Amino acid sequence: MTAYRLLADIGGTNARFALQAEGSDFADVEVLACRDYDDIGAAMDAYLARAGARGHATDAIRHAAVAIANPVEGDFVRMTNHHWCFSIAALRDARALDTLLVVNDFAALAMALPHLDEAGRERIGGDIAATPGRPIGLIGPGTGLGVSGVVPAPGPGGTRWIALAGEGGHASFAPVTRQEVDVLDALWEEHGHVSAERLLSGPGLEAIHRVLSGERLAAAAITARALDGTSAACRATVDVFCAMLGSVAGNVALTLGATGGMYIGGGIVPRLGSLFHASAFRARFEGKGRLRPYLARIPTWLVTEPYPALRGGAVMLDAATRQP
């Protein structure tokens, strides 16, 4: 009978689950809507019940890793962009787990970056080579805005990677154009503090469109109309969004010294397709005055690996359960 461990990637909208046997790829990946469950335990139980009904041995699971869109500090976790909250110890004990590793979702995603091959990423911008063994940056707009990175550290078996778990998406947004000043002014009136996440997220895309056009549309409708060419206003919103993302990504790259490369994750950018490639993202990424040459040599990639946070969580679980 296969001995599985449980992996989960919990965002503000969706919860992704998978099983993994030692030395194997994922089995039985399933995506559940968070709104359909009262808490993380209910979602976990529902997934395991369905996976068991599909013939997997879920009763014997003793190790699990959960990557979650939230700071993880201490035992109690309360999600920022969803109502779920839980005690790690209580969740572990209720499901008879020997190990329950709970980590920030973008720290887990960042841990996957050194292991991505060309099939798991898409180059944005010119053919620029990364500097091996240097920090790697990560930014990703979705329900919120994730920011992370990994830094190399020498180890007895060679280079190992250390993930950075922070909340850089909540750093204050800085406009670059007068149009962005107008957007910031409008959101200041509503929120007081305006973080990068207020603009670079699904709700942020809607906010940009509302300020620029006066029209209230869901993020999915904005991207759909921009892509099919039926709305010049929606296309303008997407262009502003991509330019802002370039500036913030450049800030992260400068802060981390990410000459190992800068990656874009999250659920929004992959849906933009050719609009993202044609946008001002890369120009704004490099547009840092005297530091333009420094940023010009940093490659940027879009993460296309379907479940990168699950993969990174598996790497972190390996380390947590490894025998000394």
Rank of each mutant, 00 (worst) to 15 (best):
T2N: 09
A3H: 14
Y4T: 13
D9V: 02
I10H: 04
F17R: 06
A21W: 07
F26A: 00
L32Q: 08
A33S: 14
D38L: 07
D39V: 03
I40Y: 02
A46Q: 07
A51T: 01
A51Q: 01
D59V: 07
V66Y: 00
A67E: 01
A69W: 00
A69R: 01
V72M: 03
G74K: 03
T80K: 00
N81Y: 00
A90N: 10
R92S: 09
R92P: 05
A94I: 13
A94N: 14
T99L: 14
V102Q: 10
A108G: 11
M111D: 08
M111S: 13
A112S: 09
H115I: 07
R121L: 11
R121C: 11
R123C: 15
I124M: 15
A130I: 14
P132Q: 13
G146T: 00
W161Q: 08
G166S: 13
G169P: 15
G169T: 08
H170R: 12
S172T: 15
A174F: 15
Q179P: 12
D182W: 10
L184N: 09
L187W: 11
G192E: 03
A196K: 06
L200H: 03
G202S: 12
G202P: 11
I208Q: 07
G214L: 09
G214N: 08
G214S: 08
R216Q: 08
R216F: 04
L217D: 07
I222Q: 08
I222H: 06
R225T: 02
G229R: 02
G229Y: 05
T230C: 04
A233S: 05
A233H: 02
R235T: 03
T237E: 02
G246S: 04
S247H: 13
V252H: 01
L256R: 00
L256C: 05
G257D: 02
G265M: 02
G267V: 02
I268E: 07
I268T: 10
R271M: 03
R271N: 05
A278G: 07
R282E: 09
R282F: 07
F285H: 14
Y294L: 14
L295S: 09
L295I: 09
P299K: 15
W301C: 14
T304Q: 08
E305L: 07
G313M: 04
G313I: 01
A314L: 09
A319W: 12
A319N: 12
A320F: 12
Q323F: 14
